[in-house]
Simulated scan of single mutants.
Amino acid sequence: MILDVDIRHQQGAFALHARFQSDGKLTALFGPSGSGKTTIVNAVSGLVQPDHARIAVQGRVLVDTKKSIDVPKHRRRIGYVFQEGRLFPHLSVRHNLLFGRWFTQRNERKAGFDHVVELLGIGHLLDRRPSTLSGGEKQRVAIGRALLADPQLLLMDEPLASLDDARKSEIYPYIERLRDQGGVPIVLVSHSVAEIARLATSVVVLSEGRVVASGPAAEVLRHTNFFEQGGLTEAGALIEARVLRHDERYELTELQARAGTLSVPRLPHPVGTSLRVRLRARDIILSLRAPEGLSALNVLPGFISSIDEAGGASVDVQLDCGGDPVVARVTRRSVEELGLKSGLAVHAIIKSIAFDPEALGVAGQKNIRNLRP
């Protein structure tokens, strides 16, 4: 188990009582402001001393108040990346990175300087000062500095919150690469459904100091009721697919998933590339029969696995499409008029607007295309 957390902490009028475990490469802590996300990562890092807690990282107990265990923060081997890069303005990028080395004894150093620089695509920045960097470049340098301290866990507290959409798109591919190739598990604090859908392998949803859901990202994100306060329109299913072929004539790419084939706008990936596709519940229309005479290119046959309450006039219809979970948000009236019920065969029609760059995980890919191994 990578992360095992059980915290009870009172801070003024706010009470945190959070318990969860995760073995994901990138665990996202999701919830509105004031839900306890930052308090949790501060307790893990040692910046906050919780009233009652047991915290273990990769089997190493950092805090156990019952046993009077409280490892000093400088010995916890935790990397921390804040909303702002917090780089030393008087040092070059190279020396900002090397500062991370000071926290690890020479014989314990594993992260290679050149490897980290290549992983984050910052080789061309080494001789520059922080004042000359964009927001996304500063955050990549801050991540590199944290990695060069050889942490057992990397905490990232809303590292993209201060960036505009263009800068976020610039840094997304590097965080994905770090997740898949960096060798260090990550905990990411976020209040963006689109962000965690793209990056997370596991999700912990918090509300008013309590954990309301925890598990694999694909499982948690399909329950849209967990995201009512900030991302209801963004929630939905995550499916794994691979690039099957490219249609140069129509500028399309065909993806193969368990649910079937999907035609999407032309992607920069070579044939055989695996990727994650987000199908938002708002972009799915249900039909009892295979549709004819529609402009929609993507129709997936499946069966209704459940119909969940969503509040108000809407419900979430959970589908099993060849083993891939798909969720459609429809009105109660539609459920009644179509006679929708568990076990019924239906067709999920995916709106063409569903396949934007964020849903396909390609926002910012032009900046990293040549970095793929």
Rank of each mutant, 00 (worst) to 15 (best):
P159R: 12
S68N: 13
E84N: 15
S192D: 13
R249I: 08
A194L: 14
T65F: 12
C321K: 03
R19L: 09
R167A: 10
L178Y: 08
L238W: 08
V243H: 10
V212Y: 00
A313P: 01
A28H: 06
S192Q: 03
E108N: 12
I307F: 06
R179L: 08
I307S: 14
L232W: 11
V327T: 15
V204H: 03
I122Y: 01
E228H: 09
L153N: 02
A345S: 12
S306P: 03
R86F: 00
L119S: 09
R329S: 08
V264P: 03
V5S: 05
A15P: 00
L275N: 06
H115A: 15
P301T: 10
A18R: 04
S342M: 03
V346G: 04
G260D: 03
G364V: 13
H269T: 09
V315P: 06
G182L: 04
R289K: 06
D247S: 05
T27M: 02
F226V: 06
E336V: 12
A354S: 13
R76M: 02
R8T: 13
P32G: 12
P151L: 11
A28N: 11
A166M: 09
S22Y: 06
E248L: 14
L262M: 05
R369E: 14
G85T: 01
A15E: 13
G34K: 11
V220Y: 02
L3W: 09
D283S: 05
R76S: 00
M1G: 15
E254K: 13
N225E: 14
M156G: 05
V299W: 02
L286S: 08
G144T: 05
K341W: 07
Q229L: 13
F303S: 13
P72T: 02
L279E: 10
G85H: 00
V264M: 03
N225L: 04
P72G: 01
V317M: 08
L244K: 14
H347K: 05
A235D: 02
H246R: 11
Q11C: 07
E292M: 07
R129W: 06
N298Y: 12
L294Y: 09
A43N: 07
A345G: 06
P50Y: 08
G136F: 01
V48W: 00
A18S: 11
R282L: 07
L178M: 10
T233K: 08
P357N: 12
A313V: 07
G260L: 03
F30A: 10
D180G: 09
G59E: 07
R75E: 11
L155Q: 04
P173Y: 11
I7Q: 03
A149C: 06
E292W: 02
A111I: 07
A213E: 10
Q139S: 08
P216M: 00
P216A: 05
L221T: 12
L360R: 07
G364E: 14
R278H: 10
A281T: 09
N370S: 15
T39R: 00
G183L: 05
L97E: 07
V184C: 01
H90Q: 12
P357Q: 09
E118R: 15
V41S: 08
A18F: 05
A241Q: 06
K366D: 15
V362G: 00
G85N: 03
F20W: 07
V204I: 15
V116F: 03
G59M: 08
N107D: 10
K110I: 04
V189G: 10
A359G: 13
V243W: 12
L29F: 06
G272E: 06
A213L: 11
G79K: 14
I40T: 04
I122C: 11
L238E: 08
S305Q: 05
Q11F: 15
L119E: 07
